[in-house]
Computed example of a mutant assay.
Amino acid sequence: MALLKRSEVEPHEDYGFFGPGSVVWKVWSYPTSLTVGFQRSVVVEELDPPLVAAVHGTQGIYRRPRTRYDRTLRYFAMVAFAGSREVCRAADVLVKVHSKAVGRLPYGEGTYDANDPASQLWIQLTGWHSILYAYEKYGPGKLTAEEEREYWQACATAAEFQTCSPDDVPRDREGVRAYFERMRPRLSASPIARQAMTHLLRADLVLPPAPLWARPASLVVARALRIATVATMPRWMRELAGIRQSRALDLLIVPVMKASFALAHLSPRIELLLLARQSPSTVAVVAPMKLGIAPRREEVLTPAEARARHGFTKPAEAHLDLRARQMTRVLDDGLAPSEQGLMESQDTLGPLA
């Protein structure tokens, strides 16, 4: 794949919700974020019983792992780097996509709903925590106290594009730790959780087929990413999920990944080239930031300003009729959910195949 040219990059409409100089751009633009950080987040998420029930119910990670990974990574990158209209549209259509992920819990009593605020808060915090953790472990290191406060405030801003409340997002490291401690008794490594975690640790499933001569190198990269991701997971979590890795590998992978990411970060075009192999649809989102291409309007908006300007509803209040119809179809009528949201999402989140 050829290196991307500046003339081929479409500028965003505005800076979205963070912009140059923000700690979000500093952390999320480092190559640890959309690799180890993102992989860690989707693996750890599966320990939440309602969330993994939704994942298992749709079977997307098994039927189409590359496109599912690509679309999910594109969404998170959009929130960090895309224009405000694009982000509002993506958040709106994601509510429709999640409306089909409803059903009865396979283990225990109760139901699950991917739009449930508690599940969305879990996704939000595991995602942002994992991105920061990978940056600290394999990147430049810890943020300053002021930067960390800004980071978690930004996480609350980004939560406005989920169905959870930004008021529930902790604003410091201690609050984040307390949240995960509260969640720990609720986590479960059920058979479907272990299956999903093992599956999502296989980075080779999201990479395009390599030519015969490049397959050994591709497998080495996938293996290194798996080792690096597992090394970020606490021991209790690995034991819960049945994931084994020696302490020696945990230690040895750190200098390897730090050097590799630092080398990749020397060239924005090389970073984009590597991203194109992992998540082709995310390149257009990240390229303007990486190549220093200013948006058409150099402004940063709040979520409320963006919704008012572009005519979108808060995700928590969006498409309530569709969500109710999906619940009725699945829980009362015993029918498969409508694919309406999934089909509509392709223009915004990328193709399904």
Rank of each mutant, 00 (worst) to 15 (best):
19 G>T: 12
213 W>Y: 14
254 V>R: 11
301 L>G: 13
38 F>N: 05
240 L>T: 07
232 T>P: 05
179 Y>E: 02
88 C>E: 15
245 Q>W: 11
103 G>Y: 09
291 L>K: 05
265 H>G: 02
182 R>F: 09
322 L>S: 06
217 A>H: 00
105 L>W: 10
98 H>W: 04
142 K>A: 12
26 K>D: 07
63 R>H: 11
32 T>G: 05
142 K>F: 02
258 K>M: 05
219 L>K: 14
69 Y>N: 08
86 E>N: 02
201 L>A: 08
271 E>P: 00
242 G>F: 07
251 L>C: 06
208 P>K: 11
346 Q>Y: 09
130 S>W: 09
224 A>D: 03
261 F>E: 02
49 P>C: 08
174 E>M: 03
7 S>K: 06
149 R>P: 02
336 A>Y: 03
147 E>I: 11
221 V>Y: 06
15 Y>F: 15
223 R>L: 04
228 A>C: 01
221 V>I: 15
196 A>Y: 06
236 W>Q: 10
305 E>F: 03
193 A>K: 08
112 Y>K: 05
327 M>W: 13
284 A>V: 03
301 L>S: 09
196 A>P: 01
271 E>M: 04
267 S>T: 08
165 S>K: 04
106 P>E: 10
270 I>C: 01
156 A>E: 07
23 V>L: 03
135 Y>D: 03
281 S>H: 14
90 A>W: 08
148 E>W: 09
262 A>T: 09
155 C>M: 12
246 S>L: 05
87 V>F: 01
336 A>S: 12
51 L>H: 13
180 F>Y: 08
275 L>H: 09
223 R>W: 11
293 I>S: 12
176 V>M: 12
271 E>S: 06
60 G>P: 00
297 R>K: 14
254 V>S: 00
264 A>W: 11
78 M>Q: 05
89 R>H: 13
45 E>G: 01
315 P>V: 09
153 Q>N: 09
208 P>L: 07
113 D>F: 13
236 W>K: 09
155 C>Y: 01
144 T>F: 09
170 P>E: 08
145 A>N: 08
207 L>G: 06
292 G>M: 11
29 S>G: 15
330 V>C: 10
197 M>N: 03
159 A>T: 03
300 V>E: 10
141 G>D: 07
180 F>A: 06
